[in-house]
Every structure is written in C-alpha cells, then in structure tokens.
Amino acid sequence: MRALLAACLLLAMTVAAPAVEPREKLPDPAQEARARDISSGLRCLVCQNESIDDSGAELAHDIRVFVRERIAAGDNNRQVVDAVVSRYGSFVLLKPPVEPATYLLWFGPPVLVLIGLAGTFVWVSRRRATATAAEPAPLSAEEQRRLQGLLEDQDR
C-alpha cells in the first residue's frame, strides 16, 4: 500500500521536461525566457508536431541555439522569428500566419457558419411565410352541408 502511494506520488510529480539542455541556456534569465517563449512557437521540422522547445531532435537543438544566438546579438523577437521563417518557411510557425495561402484555413470555418446561418434564416422565414399565407379557403356551400350532416350523425 505504502509503495503504491509512493509510486502515485512520484507519478504526480512528473512534469513534461523541456528539451532545452543546460549548455544551450543564455546567462541572462530575461533573454533565456524570451528564447523559451519564441522556441515554444516554432515547429521542429523533423518531428513536425512538436515545438523545438519540446523536441529532442538534433535539428531542434540547432534552431534553439540559433534563436539564442540571435537574441544575444540583440535581435527583437520579431526579427528572430523572421530569421527562422526566412530559412524554413512559415511552416515552422506552429500558429499559422494570416496570409493569402492560409485565408481558407482562417476564414473558412466562420464563412461556413455564416452560410449555415443565412440558410437557416431563409428556411425559417420561408416556412413562416407559407404558414401565414396559406390560410385555408372557407368551406363551400356543398362542404358546409356535408359537415353539418356528419355532425348531426355524431349527435345521434
């Protein structure tokens, strides 16, 4: 029992460790924090669904070092990201930028929702129109007579 508890406790203490190695780190904590922030938004092109901050791949290491070099050289975050994008393309950004090639990605879903809403609106308003417009015609004299007959039959 005690062993099980200890095991659970140990398991609870595990956290996803970033792949950043001590020798990569910048001496300035503020700069290192910026590097971590930038790295978490950059895709590792070898594993493709991990950021370079999480990935243990060799290439991720190279890009992490590159990012830190640029920061140490005085680049701002934007310049660092641009430098990586100019080499690897906007695919390295885990969050795709809004540009003509990604318009469908960004605006497709809202446009589909709008089309759906418009369709529903047209459908509902049309149904309402037919419901009110198709007021039943008054009974003809012949129908009136038959109805009267039926009702009288029932009463008997």
Binding site: D62, I63, R87, Y88
Partner: peptide
Amino acid sequence: PDGRTGLNFGVYG
C-alpha cells in the same frame, strides 16, 4: 561540421 550552412539553407534532414 556544425550544420550552420545547412540551417541557412533550411536543411531539415
């Protein structure tokens, strides 16, 4: 040796 030229070319493997 350090893959820097590769990085500049955008080599990922």
